[in-house]
């Protein structure tokens, strides 16, 4: 019974942890929009703008990745079950 409660709470917690994906989504959308603006203004700088945008996006993504790692730990390597 206790085990079932812990497992259910872990599954809910993993789902809640993925709410962290909202932030990077907004941030990356903002960055991509600005990059599109920049390419529109200066089409010849397209390569530099694109690589800078990808770099910035990948760095901005890390908070979402933290949420994902928490969710993966809760689902596949749950430390809470061992505490029972």
């Amino acid at each position: 019974m206790e085990r079932a409660i812990v497992l259910a709470a872990s599954a809910i917690g993993a789902g809640l942890a993925m709410i962290a994906g909202v932030g990077p989504g907004i941030g990356q959308g903002f960055a991509a929009g600005k990059a599109a603006e920049a390419v529109g203004r200066q089409p010849e700088a397209r390569g530099a703008v694109t690589s800078t945008m990808l770099f910035g996006c990948a760095v901005a993504e890390s908070t979402g990745i933290y949420g994902l790692v928490v969710a993966l730990i809760l689902l596949f390597a749950n430390p809470l079950v061992g505490l029972l």
């Binding site: 990948a58 760095v59 993504e61 890390s62 990745i65 994902l68 790692v69």
Partner: peptide, 10 residues
């Protein structure tokens, strides 16, 4: 670490 691992694992 988490950035690279998280992307590939996802």
């Amino acid at each position: 670490t988490f950035r690279h691992f998280g992307n590939i694992a996802a």
